[in-house]
C-alpha cells in the first residue's frame, strides 16, 4: 500500500479563559505570524481586549530537523466550547493559560482542568498564569492546593505571555512531560 510520507509533527493546544493570553503566547513563540480568527467583541472592550478568538489560533515552530511543533489556541468564551474537542483531536498536550488578574483564578483553573479532562483525561498538562503583577492578592499556593485536591500533577508557572522565552518555557515543560 502506498502511503504519504509526512514530517513528524507535535500538536499542542493552548486553552484557557478569555483574556488570559493564549493568542498572545502563541504569537510570541511562533516563527511567523500565526493564523488568527480574531473578531471584535460585540459587547465592547473587556479590559484591554477588543477582540476574541472565535475558531482557533494556529502557528508552527520548527524545533530541529523534521520535527515541527504545531500550536493551536482555543477560543476562551463558553459559547465556543464546541470547538474544544475538535481542536484537541490529536493533541499531545495542553498548555492551560490563566490570568492571575482575575479574582477567580482558582475557580477558572478548576473549571478548565475538569473541562479538558472530560474531553481527554490523559492529556499532559502544564499551567501558566499571566498578569500576576496586576493582582496583589494572587495566591499561587491556592492553585497548588487545588491541583492537589483535583489529583492533577501539572507543572505550574507564572509567566508573561508577551515574552517569547517565557512562553517557550511552558512549551518545553510540556514537551518534557511527553518524553
Amino acid at each position: 500500500m502506498n502511503s504519504l510520507a509526512v514530517a513528524t509533527t507535535t500538536k499542542l493546544v493552548f486553552a484557557g479563559p478569555l483574556g488570559a493570553g493564549k493568542t498572545t503566547a502563541i504569537a510570541a513563540i511562533a516563527d511567523v505570524p500565526p493564523v488568527s480568527t480574531e473578531m471584535p467583541l460585540a459587547t465592547g472592550a473587556v479590559g484591554d481586549k477588543v477582540s476574541t478568538t472565535v475558531a482557533f489560533d494556529f502557528a508552527s515552530v520548527r524545533l530541529d530537523g523534521d520535527t515541527t511543533l504545531f500550536l493551536y489556541g482555543l477560543p476562551g468564551q463558553e459559547h465556543f466550547a464546541f470547538m474544544r474537542p475538535l481542536v484537541l483531536e490529536g493533541a499531545l498536550g495542553v498548555v492551560l493559560v490563566l490570568s492571575g488578574a482575575d479574582g477567580d483564578t482558582v475557580a477558572q483553573c478548576r473549571y478548565w482542568i475538569r473541562a479538558l479532562a472530560e474531553i481527554d483525561a490523559t492529556l499532559p498538562l502544564v499551567i501558566g498564569i499571566t498578569q500576576t503583577d496586576r493582582n496583589p492578592d494572587f495566591d499561587l499556593a491556592a492553585l497548588r492546593r487545588l491541583l492537589r485536591d483535583e489529583g492533577v500533577a501539572a507543572p505550574l508557572f507564572t509567566f508573561d505571555a508577551r515574552d517569547r522565552e517565557q512562553a517557550a518555557q511552558l512549551v518545553r515543560a510540556l514537551l518534557l512531560l511527553l518524553d
Binding site: T37, E38, M39, V54, A55, P75, H79, F80, F82, M83
Partner: peptide, 10 residues
C-alpha cells in the same frame, strides 16, 4: 450563532 461566527472567521 456561535458556529456561524467560527465559519465566517475561518
Amino acid at each position: 450563532a456561535a458556529v456561524s461566527s467560527s465559519l465566517l472567521a475561518l
